[in-house]
Amino acid sequence: MSVLTRTPTPLGRTRISRLQGKARYAPTLATVGLFLAMFAIGAGMYPGFLSGQVFLNLLIDNTFLIVLAVGMTFVILTGGIDLSVGSVVALSMMIAAALLQAGWNPFVVIALVLLTGATFGLLMGLVIQVFEIQPFIVTLAGLFLARGLCYVISVDSITVTDPFFTAMAQARIPLAEKLFVSPGVVIALVVVAVAFYVLHQTRFGRTVYAIGGGESSALLMGLAVPRTKVLVYGISGLCSAIGGILFSFYSLSGYSLAATGMELDAIAAVVVGGTLLTGGYGYVLGSLAGVLILGIVQTFISYEGTLSSWWTRIVIGALLLAFILLQKLFSRKVKLA
């Protein structure tokens, strides 16, 4: 207890607190380490695994999930949760597909979809904030509502034939010889970069962390807590809409059952990425690594011909559990420190 002695030892003290401070990177570092290890194991087991394109394909196949995980990171950092993201993805796809089918300009459609997603999220945030209802139940209602609205638009699948969307689906951006990414990857990475910037370089972003660290403290410090809490759900809604557009680029259709359960994947990616579900600790880059880990699990299973696709879900569940237990250990350590 007697930290404050009359003769402080500045050097020693600083080093100790630096060391303890590193603990906050522990879960995220574990994620990156796990990813590298999995990639190395894959390279050892399968010929052709260790190629740049296998890595880039992880990005190409998961653009929408990356964007969803980014939005989810904002929400979980404040200590909330958003269960509606998968349904909002589906709704965005349906709106886009239906409007494109009706002959709308694709850019107007995209703008409208993004606006809808953001508004949807903001409304949920308002209900959570103003009426003090648990985020879990409000976004659950959002899940129902968005999924139901999909069916209102159409019960059947709608194919997208718009030239811009098909162009985006087929376009490949060469990076080097035999290495390429899709435009979606660029968009997803831009979203990650913007999120990183917002979280670390703006007062809004720091307020997000502050709320996760202690909402009442943040309030007493005079921070804009209510506004920030509403906005994170708006951001999550916007990200879901972007995810929906990216998924449309990827699948060129709108289908009411699309992205069922994707909220679970997004939450799993964020948790595996080292963000504490209780809020306050975590990084958006960790979430990106989390998505890549989920992706590499899938790649593994497709390389290993004998394993069936459902192993993906089981492994994701196991990873989720492992990281939750890790978090449990971690937060105990933080309390002791």
């Binding site: 679970l264 939450i267 799993a268 069936s308 696709s309 459902w310 192993w311 993906t312 879900r313 089981i314 994701i316 569940g317 196991a318 989720l320 559990l321 939750i324």
Partner: peptide
Amino acid sequence: LVLMTAGRGLAQL
């Protein structure tokens, strides 16, 4: 949530 995520995989297994 863990079992919710993994459960359907187990059922398919």
